[in-house]
């Protein structure tokens, strides 16, 4: 099987500064890959390089010719001065038929809000609409950039569950960037830990226990998250201590 895209020793510079160095990465059809890393680690830059928005400064990036990519942005702020229905939004910038729109809304679990105003939607509904919009491209690769920002934990979990279901439905590969490790890891085939370069990668459990990952997330801003995971793993003994 040929990979959807392959980066070899890829480096990317922004304003003369090296943001990514020596990134080697390939994604196979149908795979769910999650990139985790702290702020400024080049996660979003890597996604932008893949969709061709920033040119590589070194190495090679081979994208399978004609690869259909669906892109779900971090978030969308819809100004309340702009009246636009969900249905109209799906037709931007390319007009789509009503049945196409209905189909992707159903896939994204948002069929009941087609005629609502975009500015009236909740965070979770808006995220589903953005997902539906990305599905219009009939993607072989679905790219999600911190797509659950602003959702609460059950909301994020439901959203990732949905992404997993969509992958099973239409067989697309999924590449997502996230900082929500506890939710993401369960649904991913492979996790890549990024901090300017690839620190470690592999199955979710392997990455979580890798010393490079611990070094990155076990201190500083990531500390609370690592601690939370730990507590969660030992819920019973924790409760037990309190009872005594």
């Amino acid at each position: 099987m040929t990979p959807l895209f392959k980066a070899e020793a890829l480096s990317v510079k922004l304003d003369g500064q090296t943001v990514l160095a020596q990134v080697t990465l390939a994604i196979m059809p149908g795979e769910i890959v999650t990139i985790v890393g702290p702020n400024g680690s080049g996660k979003s830059t890597l996604l932008r390089a893949i969709i061709g928005a920033v040119p590589p400064a070194g190495g090679t990036l081979t994208v399978r010719p004609g690869l259909r990519i669906g892109y779900v942005p971090q978030k969308l702020h819809v100004d309340s001065t702009l009246p636009v229905t969900v249905l109209r939004f799906l037709s931007l910038p390319k007009r789509v038929s009503r049945s196409e729109a209905a189909h992707v809304l159903e896939l994204a679990g948002a069929q009941n809000i087609a005629s609502k105003q975009l500015s009236e939607l909740s965070g979770g509904q808006l995220q589903r609409v953005l997902l539906a919009r990305a599905l219009l491209a009939k993607p072989e690769l679905l790219i999600l950039d911190e797509a659950t920002q602003g959702l609460d934990q059950p909301g994020s979990a439901a959203f990732y569950q949905l992404v997993g279901d969509i992958r099973d439905d239409i067989g697309c590969a999924v590449l997502m960037v996230s900082h929500e490790l506890h939710v993401v890891m369960a649904s991913s085939d492979r996790v890549i830990c990024l901090n300017g370069h690839i620190c470690c990668e592999g199955h979710p459990a392997h990455v979580a226990s890798a010393p490079e990952y611990r070094a990155l997330f076990g201190s500083g801003t990531g500390g609370a998250l690592a601690l939370y995971r730990h507590d969660h793993d030992h819920e019973h003994s924790h409760k037990h201590e309190h009872v005594e």
Partner: peptide, 19 residues
């Protein structure tokens, strides 16, 4: 029109759509 509208709503989505 459609390009302007897309760019107005989200420059990011416009770029992803090749605008």
């Amino acid at each position: 029109w459609d390009a302007l509208l897309t760019a107005t709503m989200s420059p990011e989505l416009a770029r992803a759509g090749g605008l």
